[in-house]
Design a protein around this nucleic acid. Structure first.
Lengths: 344, 344
DNA sequence: TTGTAGGCGTTATCAC
DNA sequence: GTGATAACGCCTACAA
C-alpha cells in the first residue's frame, strides 16, 4: 500500500526541478516549456500522483465544491432535481456535498454550519417543512457565501431563487377542471406557511375568480398531502355529502387517496368526481383511472439551480442583484379529469 | 460582508492567547482549563468564527468525507439507498460527495479520480451498466483508499460488498409462481454481465429445478428492463403463442409493460398470465391488477453500506478481510400473481 | 522559462 | 495548562 501519497515535491525531486515548476506544469501554465510539461506529466503518471484538492483549496480559497440541502433525497421530485444539479456541477468541475434536513429545522441549521465549515463555494437549499425562520440562511448569506434557494424557499431572504410557477400551475389545473364542467372544486393544500402551497392556493383562487365562482373557504383542506389524509378527507367529503364535484390536490399522493376513497364509496371518477394531482409522480400514469397532474420538470429545475449558483460563484459581483427564475410546469391531462369526452 | 473569515489566530490575538490554545480549547482538549475554554468559545461565537475543515483535513490527513458513485440518483432504489447512507454518515460526522456515472464507464473512472483528488476517506460505489472492467476500482483500492461496493458490483475486486440476496429473491418469486400453479414461466433478465441479473437468473433456475421443471433457455429474454421492452416482448410471447403462463421480470418497469400488453391483447392477469416484478417501485401497488414484486429495503441497504465503510475507515487494519453482507429482500404478493384465490 | 519564499488555517510535538 | 514552532501540499508574487 502506498504509505504516503506522491506530492509535487516528490515529482520535483525525481526530476531535479522545483515544486513550483511542477505545479505550473501540471496546471498547464503558459510560461512552462512544452518539454518540461511533458516530462512532468509522465513522471506524475509514473509515480501515481494524484493532486491534493484540499491543499489547493486551502491555498486558493476556492473549494470547487457546492453544498446542497434538501428535506429528503428519496423523493421523486427531489432526486430528479439533484440529478439535474449533478449533471451541471460535474461538467463545470464542481463537487456537490449533499445533506438531508429530514424536514427538521435543527438538522437544517446544522447542515448549514457543516457546509460553511467545509468551505463550500456556495449553498443550494430547499427548506424543510419546519423552517419558519430565516436566521440560519441569513447568517450564511451575511458571511458572504453565495446561496440559491429552490422550490421551497424563504421569501424574506434576498438571494436568487429558482421556482416552479406554482400559481400558474394551479391556475391551469383548476381552469381545466372548470372547463370540464366541474363547478364545485375542493382543494387539498399543504402547510400554508410554505410558499409553494400558498401559491398553489392562490392559483386555485385566481381561476375560480376568473370564472366568477365565489371562493369557499370550507372547501380548502389544509395539510392533506399523503395518501391516508387524502383518503380520509375524501371519505368525509362524500359521506357528509358536501357539494363537491372535483378535487384539486397539491399532492399526487393525496389525490391518489381521493381516488381510492371514491372507488371504495362507488363514486365514479371522473363522472361524479374529477381529480387533479400535483407533481406527476410516476404512478399517476398507471393508476386507473389515470391521474391528471402537473409535471414539474425537476431535472431542468436542478440544472437551472446549478447554473445559477455557479454563475454567482464565478462572477461574484459585490452588489449582486437576486434573481428569481420561474419554470412553468405543464398540466398533464389524463382520465381522472376528462369528463367532457364522454358527455360531449 | 466579512472580507476575511475569522481564524483561530484572530481569536488568539483578541484574547492574548496563542493559536494552539485556542485550537485545543475549541476541540475540548482535556488539558485546557474550563475557564479558558469558556472565554474562547464565547469569543469564537462573538467573532462569528467557523472552523476551516479544509485546513484541519490537510493537517490531519482525514477529510471526514466519503465519496459515493451511483449510476443515476433519480431512481427509486438508488435515491432511497442514498437516503439511508446520508442518515448514517451525517450522524457519524461525515459528509458525502455524490457523483453520477450516468451508466457510463468513462464518467465512472473520472468520478473515482475526482474523489481521490478530494482526498475522501473512502468510496462507496454501485457500478454502471457499462462497467465490464475493474481497473479503475482496483487502482483506487491499491492506493489504499477504503472501498465498499453495493448492489451492482465487480466480483473480482477484493473489497467489502453489500448486496441484496438476489438469488434468494428470485427463488422466492418463482417458487411463489409455481405454487400458484403456473408451470411455464418466462424470465425478463437484465444484462447478464452484471451480477444482480445473473443472480436473479440463478434463483429462477434454482426454483425451477427444485420443482423438476426443465430450464428452457428460450424463455429467458435478456435486456428487458424498461416498459417498452417489456411490452414488446410480451406481445411477442402472446402473439407467437409461446407456451408461457407467467412472467418473472427483473424489473418492475418491464413487468408493467407486460401488464399493459396483456391488457391490450385481452389476456387476463393473473388468470391466464401471472406477473411478478422486481424492486417494489411505488406504482406496483397502484396499478390494476396490482403487481407482485420484491421489496429491496433500500434505506437499510444504504445504512449498512455507510456503516461498513465507516467501520473500515476508522478501524483501518492493514490486513482487512473483505466482508460480503447480504440483505434478504421480501416478496410482496399482490394481485398479478394470485391465481389460487379464485381457483381454490 | 524557472526558482525562491511565504502563506492558506490547522494541529502535533516539543518545550516550559 | 499554555506557548512556540513546524508541517500538511499547494499556489503565486516576485525575483532572476
Amino acid at each position: 500500500m502506498a504509505n504516503k501519497r506522491t506530492t509535487i515535491h516528490d515529482i520535483a525531486k525525481a526530476l531535479e526541478l522545483t515544486a513550483s515548476t511542477v505545479s505550473r506544469a501540471l496546471n498547464d501554465h503558459p510560461k512552462i516549456s512544452i518539454e518540461t510539461k511533458e516530462i512532468v506529466r509522465r513522471k506524475a503518471k509514473e509515480l501515481n500522483y494524484t493532486a491534493n484538492t484540499l491543499a489547493a483549496s486551502l491555498r486558493t480559497g476556492k473549494a470547487k465544491t457546492i453544498g446542497l440541502i434538501v428535506p429528503r433525497i428519496n423523493r421523486f421530485f427531489i432526486s430528479n432535481t439533484i440529478s439535474g444539479i449533478e449533471s451541471v456541477t460535474n461538467k463545470a468541475g464542481y463537487n456537490i456535498i449533499i445533506c438531508q434536513s429530514e424536514e427538521n429545522l435543527q438538522k437544517e441549521e446544522q447542515n448549514i454550519i457543516t457546509l460553511i465549515n467545509s468551505r463550500v463555494d456556495g449553498i443550494m437549499i430547499a427548506i424543510s417543512f419546519e423552517t419558519a425562520t430565516s436566521k440560519h440562511i441569513e447568517k450564511a448569506r451575511k458571511s458572504g457565501i453565495p446561496i440559491v434557494q429552490f422550490d421551497r424557499i424563504r421569501e424574506d431572504v434576498p438571494v436568487s431563487n429558482v421556482l416552479n410557477d406554482n400559481e400558474m400551475a394551479s391556475y391551469l389545473a383548476v381552469t381545466h377542471l372548470l372547463e370540464q364542467g366541474y363547478t364545485s372544486i375542493a382543494h387539498f393544500a399543504g402547510p400554508l406557511h410554505i410558499n409553494i402551497y400558498r401559491q398553489r392556493l392562490a392559483g386555485y383562487k385566481k381561476a375560480l375568480k376568473e370564472h366568477n365562482i365565489i371562493f369557499d373557504e370550507s372547501l380548502v383542506f389544509e395539510n392533506v398531502l399523503d395518501k391516508e389524509k387524502g383518503y380520509q378527507t375524501t371519505c368525509q367529503i362524500i359521506n357528509n355529502q358536501l357539494n363537491v364535484d372535483a378535487i384539486f390536490s397539491s399532492s399526487d399522493y393525496s389525490a391518489l387517496g381521493a381516488l381510492l376513497a371514491a372507488k371504495q364509496l362507488q363514486v365514479n371518477v371522473p363522472q361524479q368526481l374529477g381529480i387533479v394531482g400535483f407533481a406527476n409522480e410516476p404512478f399517476t400514469e398507471f393508476v386507473s383511472p389515470s391521474l391528471t397532474s402537473i409535471n414539474q420538470f425537476a431535472e431542468e429545475m436542478g440544472a437551472t439551480v446549478a447554473k445559477t449558483i455557479i454563475d454567482q460563484i464565478e462572477n461574484h459581483n459585490e452588489e449582486l442583484v437576486p434573481k428569481s427564475i420561474s419554470i412553468v410546469p405543464k398540466l398533464i391531462v389524463r382520465e381522472s379529469s376528462m369528463r367532457s369526452n364522454k358527455f360531449n
